[in-house]
Nucleic acid binder design. Sequence first.
DNA 1: TTGTAAGCGTTATCAA
DNA 2: TTGATAACGCTTACAA
Lengths: 352, 352
Amino acid sequence: MPTVRRVKATSVAAITINDVADRAGVSIKTVSRVLNNEANVRPETRERVQEAVTALGYRPNLSARSLAGSRSFLIGLCFDNPNPAYVSEAQIGAITRCRVSGYHLVVEPVDNRSETADSQLEAMVFNVRVDGVIITPPVSDHPAILAMLEASRTPYVRISPERDRDRGPSVYMDDYKAAYDMTNYLLGLGHRRIGFVRGHPDHGSSYRRFDGFHAAMADHGLPLQPDLLAQGYFTFQSGVQAGEQLLRHPERPTAIFAASDGMALGVMSTAARMGLSIPTDLSVAGFDDTPTARVVWPPLTTVRQPINEMAAAAADILISGEARRAMDDKLPIKRMLDFELIVRQSCAPPKA
Amino acid sequence: MPTVRRVKATSVAAITINDVADRAGVSIKTVSRVLNNEANVRPETRERVQEAVTALGYRPNLSARSLAGSRSFLIGLCFDNPNPAYVSEAQIGAITRCRVSGYHLVVEPVDNRSETADSQLEAMVFNVRVDGVIITPPVSDHPAILAMLEASRTPYVRISPERDRDRGPSVYMDDYKAAYDMTNYLLGLGHRRIGFVRGHPDHGSSYRRFDGFHAAMADHGLPLQPDLLAQGYFTFQSGVQAGEQLLRHPERPTAIFAASDGMALGVMSTAARMGLSIPTDLSVAGFDDTPTARVVWPPLTTVRQPINEMAAAAADILISGEARRAMDDKLPIKRMLDFELIVRQSCAPPKA
DNA sequence: TTGTAAGCGTTATCAA
DNA sequence: TTGATAACGCTTACAA
């Protein structure tokens, strides 16, 4: 009876650090040094090792590195899923930064409303042992998740946190300045009676956006007019109602700036129902650049969040080790990124 | 000078299999047996071990398992990004199945048009050593990627492949039956003159959808009328043109079934321009259930692909080991999943 | 049914 | 500047 040879799954025995060391005529420790860009390796030795690496097509085994060392080369991305476009962009941004340093991204969708959402993340922290976790909103405010991460001393970066903004490293955009700039844009078109639809009172960004609007108006010598202010809740429906309130005003605004695209769309629909044409009779601006914003007619002028860039920055903070150092030193890390004003066709100078 | 004690990143020394073995009064091998659900462990021993595991909150180190064994407990998900909603649903589906078996998902966006897209995946295969890769369309047809995966003997599952449908395991939906059922639905509403907008001739699904339409009509004794057929290319614009062609017909159809939502939307816009109201004057049905489908007015009746379920099935084929066995045995694996008919308000019985 | 011992492929220690 | 050698925490022979 012939002997049955069991072969490993990957039929060709993978090339290891030993093969490289043999070929380069050095010890594995030296190969390791070159791989990790450590100092104290003679240039010619380094070169010889590098030659062997490429010649052999050597790929360090991540599991072995992780087991022996202190890094797993894995970053976790934790998100809830209300907005696929947001999550998708965040993933691209994070991956882009990860690739540069040979890191990989492990995704972990969680249910943000669940009290036990942290247990879904635990496997990533304790079994996979990711080197850090990026958390997108609204999960970036989940108390149990933050607590679990801190207890396990896992570095994390929050994207656009709302509450406890000084807790742990975070990356966000300048809502205030974005609203300021958008308001300035409308003022530049010649508008003076500008209505504003506020965001949900539970969200910090609502206040920052309102303050930006307020400041721009004030800088143009235009005091706040309460009858040009409406309260919204980030929803389409609340935008419809805010639109009704603002547009049935005897001296109705020539422009309305809503603190979210959803509400801006609601305003547009109200305007349409009232026979007002956009942007001729009314200019409308939104905030967020949702996919629908570019599909409606006329396409909505709005603010794009730098989602991609924020996620990349978050990955960078993790990979560079800043997050861990900040954790040890109790230093806060904050990176504020630039938004983008997306000018489409929903705004025009006021009539006559 | 006091001694500086360097402590590992995770301040609390992690609990290992040794701790569990000690507490349970067995050898680590027995703990390993229990962990991996191996046979030949006395029930009471098994219980004792399990007690120790929960009492200690033991979490096996994935890197160690991966290094020693043949599994990494990591599945890769490879996708291009034309459609965030699709990718997002696929991720949820894959993760759901992964969680059941303690697997995690590593994401890898690639540029499908790039000839060297496979090199982006190589790190996942050779460094991370994922246990398998799920590939979503259109990457599921990328020749270099499939070749690389096969050469490295990495199990993979293709979702909705178009070309070489017998190459490797795949999961897809029944385009034929979906088109058949949708046509039947229109026939059930009383339509007899039904126009059809064909999909892009380069896509296999176009033919399967057309065949389903054709068969349903034939089963109702309605022969194919060439003047009720229009060629489209999955785009909005091609839908506009197809709509013009079909609707300027002297005896115009009472319903139009387009092989994609994009084209259906184009048909709707043409109808609106011609003063036809939907669904009173014309019923329109689409295919794909894109996000826009539910936003337009009237909301579009369409077919939902079981993206979530397909990804879950793909993960299952990988995790269960079917994919690897199929690779060894050269057996094809195919799983066809059920679609869903999404009835919204764009279809109604024909007038009089 | 259980245990001993030898890896798995790296990084870390410490001596040369 | 280098290199033996010992971890790292598990699985897998193989033995008992």
